[in-house]
Amino acid sequence: MRVFADGAKQESPATLRFRVPSEKADATTVRVDVSLPKGVTSTAIPPAPGWKQKEMSSPQGVTQIMWTATAGHELKPDAHRYFDVKVGPLPNKASIAFDVAQTYSDGSVVNWNERQTGAKEPEFPAPVLVLDAAAAKAELTRQEAPAQQTPTATASPAPAAAAREEGAGGRPLLLWTAVGAAIVSIGAVVILSRGTSNRP
């Protein structure tokens, strides 16, 4: 599912072209619903031969346009066609996403409404009209950055403190203990020697 608009610019009218593929091997596309987000207003809906069209607006400012195939004009498997909508001045945004619901003859509905938030494209992406490529790319980069960040391991203060204690106090303590033991040993030897020399 894609949307195109030749020469579309921010704050200028445009003609939106929705390319609808029929991707099921055992069913035909019989209905297409396009939701125009708030800020995008339709001014005309060019005829789509073989399809009836209807336009509805919600209190929230969302416009829904519905195309329904007449008998014999269903969109067959592996085929595609365009549905056009003329709109007033586009909003001052880097990109505009549209929600599209595609109904098949077997009753199943595919909702093309998933937003891309990183480098990986979703399974059923919403059609997006890019008005400012640089700004749209920057927005995707900002959305992708948090996902790429990984927690940084923080060294425990205990081993560091233990190392400092060993370097600053541990070794001197052992040294003084060894020296003390040596002095005691020497004293014992001296006393023993004196005791031996005083014997008759």
Rank of each mutant, 00 (worst) to 15 (best):
V87F: 06
L16H: 06
G61T: 01
R19N: 12
R31W: 01
P125Y: 07
A101R: 04
A126K: 12
K86D: 15
A14E: 04
V184H: 07
D33F: 00
A27W: 05
S108H: 12
P37S: 07
F124N: 13
G195A: 15
A138I: 11
A161N: 11
E123P: 06
D84I: 05
T103F: 03
P172H: 06
A27E: 04
A181E: 02
T152F: 08
H80R: 11
L192F: 12
A8M: 09
R19A: 12
E74G: 02
R19H: 15
L75E: 01
N111Y: 08
D106A: 05
V20R: 03
F18D: 01
L16R: 08
S105V: 08
F4N: 13
I191M: 15
R2N: 12
P151M: 11
K38I: 13
G88Y: 00
F83I: 01
R17F: 08
T70P: 01
V62N: 05
L36Y: 05
V40W: 00
T154K: 12
A145S: 03
V109T: 06
A126C: 13
T141F: 14
A161M: 15
W112C: 04
T68P: 01
G107L: 04
S193M: 13
V30K: 02
P37G: 08
D84A: 15
N92Q: 14
E11K: 10
E123S: 12
I45M: 04
L140T: 11
V32Q: 04
D6W: 10
A71K: 09
A71Q: 06
P47L: 00
D84V: 11
S35Q: 13
Y82D: 15
G170P: 09
A178S: 01
E74W: 01
V110I: 08
K93E: 14
L192P: 11
A119G: 12
E139L: 06
R81H: 03
A162H: 06
R199L: 10
I183D: 04
P59G: 05
D99W: 07
F18I: 03
R142L: 13
V109H: 02
D84H: 14
A8I: 10
Q60C: 10
L174M: 05
R31T: 04
G50Q: 02
V30A: 00
V184M: 14
T29Y: 00
S197M: 06
